[in-house]
Design a protein around this nucleic acid. Structure first.
Lengths: 295, 295
DNA sequence: TTCTGCGATACCCGGCAGGTATCACCCCAG
DNA sequence: CTGGGGTGATACCTGCCGGGTATCGCAGAA
């Protein structure tokens, strides 16, 4: 009947993520009792039990999981509405001298592709200004959804193209980055099996959705940190071939024969109506002469 | 900074669609002054001028157009969150005996395809219950976005696949539906030029986004109405070949040689996680042995 | 001119969002 | 067994703000 308020969604998502009313209230900058009450009201209004209060913390019901997922999407969409509106206002109040595009990229990934793209686009007659917004691992999708970015380079299979329009740009293999001093560093090719179970060189673990998979390797959240650990001989990493850009002198890169290839796509929100964006996409696809994948 | 409330979005969308505070307030079931104030607050909070108040009605600024488009998406997303949460709750409170899927279709379009699909799916071992939700012209996209439907049959180029995952199902040509008594009815094929400028038989006009394009032909919003007008010899229509299903006795259908083909896709929201949905899609693609188009 | 229709302003009121204090409960530590 | 700490829920208060009515200011049409 009545429509969900974004405030309620924000509250619920906070609680659902923390699974703890106190911490959630803290994160929201409010006291715990009003938060409890708000969630109760939400449950009553929806006629749905969202949380299993079970004396020791809180758990999501099935419906709660659905609302968490859908609620995030909805919150991102409203945030995007606000952000894009503000940007549109700047554009047409300033007489729209040059449109401004924000491209979201994974820091240090597809670096040379990005460089070539920016160079080629800058050479276009009426190119917009481009701001590069570098982010963490799967953050690019979120940037597109919540309006921080107008367009992004997404790496499949690390990112998902779900919900976006996209064009394929390039495919690359993966390499193992080893300490230069390691015996395997002299090989000309390796398989995943070769490197996945070396006792003295455990595979580094990256965060997936904020949490780390269990395993022996060190937890890294940063290329610099990873690079240093490899240089110190503590770990090995599997990365896209284009990561050669940031290798250090005491790193060795060896191609992997059996790792799934990494495909870079340029992706944008499905209802975009910007000429500058269209031009950028055209430039990108021409640059790589790839085939259309998704419209 | 602060986040948009859905109430504000609802208000703004109403005003932006009506371009009239009084009518918008009426539609929202409230008085006009609070609505004016709410919009002003919204503009101040965003720091953006959304409307050009110009004494004779209201007009959208560029930023306003952006907010209208993005706001609709956001509102649909929150509505979808509420609806899908409620349905999930029903499912897991009832012990999820059989999942229930809602499929959105354009009334009377792809009828035999739908029939074959439902039959084939019902024969699956653990088929969910399927509810068919028939709607108007481009309404299927909205149904997917706001959660009324879990999956839909979309007809390209009438519908857009933007923002959904989809698989191609079938391609068909188009036919001209004429009064059986009309001279052209005896032809075995026609071109668009043949029928687009017949003085006594103007092409019927369908609503696009709620409004009708200008033209001489009658305005129709309903297949029955259209069928009757054709039977009465007042108009001619161009429809997908599968529309033969609903032809009357005094209709004549003639294939068109140069009309763009109509492609039926099965489409679903990008983050769907339902096994029943996956099974339905698999059934559909097997049924038609078409190739994947969009993932 | 006056009349009419539009959005904006002024002012009031009630509800609800948010705060503090406290409770009820369970799990552990001792 | 008992008390303390940590959980979410309840009670109660208060100020803000969303919404209503009455009215204004302004432009265009009669």
């Amino acid at each position: 009947m009545d429509t969900l308020e974004t405030r309620e969604l924000r509250y619920f998502v906070a609680v659902a993520e923390e699974l703890h009313f106190g911490r959630a209230a803290d994160r929201l900058g409010m006291a715990q009792p009003p938060l409890s009450r708000a969630i109760q009201q939400l449950e009553r209004r929806l006629g749905v039990c969202l949380l299993e209060r079970d004396r020791r913390g809180v758990q999501l019901t099935g419906a709660g999981q659905v609302l968490l997922r859908e609620g995030r999407v909805a919150l991102d969409a409203t945030a995007a509405a606000a952000r894009r509106t503000r940007r549109a206002s700047l554009a047409d109040s300033a007489g729209s001298p040059r449109e401004r595009l924000v491209i979201g990229v994974k820091a240090a990934a597809s670096h040379d592709l990005l460089q070539r793209l920016l160079a080629a686009y800058a050479a276009e007659p009426d190119a917009a200004e481009i701001e590069v917004l570098a982010g963490g691992f799967a953050e690019q999708e979120e940037m597109l959804r919540d309006g921080r970015a107008d367009v992004a380079l997404l790496l499949v299979p690390f990112n998902s193209l779900a919900g976006f329009d996209s064009e394929e740009l390039q495919t690359e293999g993966r390499i193992a980055v080893l300490p230069a001093a390691h015996p395997l560093a002299t090989r000309t090719a390796l398989s995943m099996a070769d490197i996945s179970d070396i006792p003295d060189l455990p595979l580094a673990r990256w965060p997936r959705h904020g949490t780390y998979a269990p395993g022996p390797g060190p937890e890294v959240h940063d290329h610099t940190q990873l690079a240093q650990l490899i240089a110190l001989g503590r770990t090995v990493a599997v990365v896209p071939a284009s990561a050669r850009t940031w290798l250090w002198h005491d790193h060795a890169a060896v191609p992997l024969t059996d790792a799934a290839p990494v495909v870079t796509h340029i992706a944008w929100p499905p209802h975009s109506r910007s000429l500058a964006l269209a031009a950028l996409i055209r430039t990108a696809t021409r640059l790589t002469s790839a085939t259309a994948s998704n419209r």
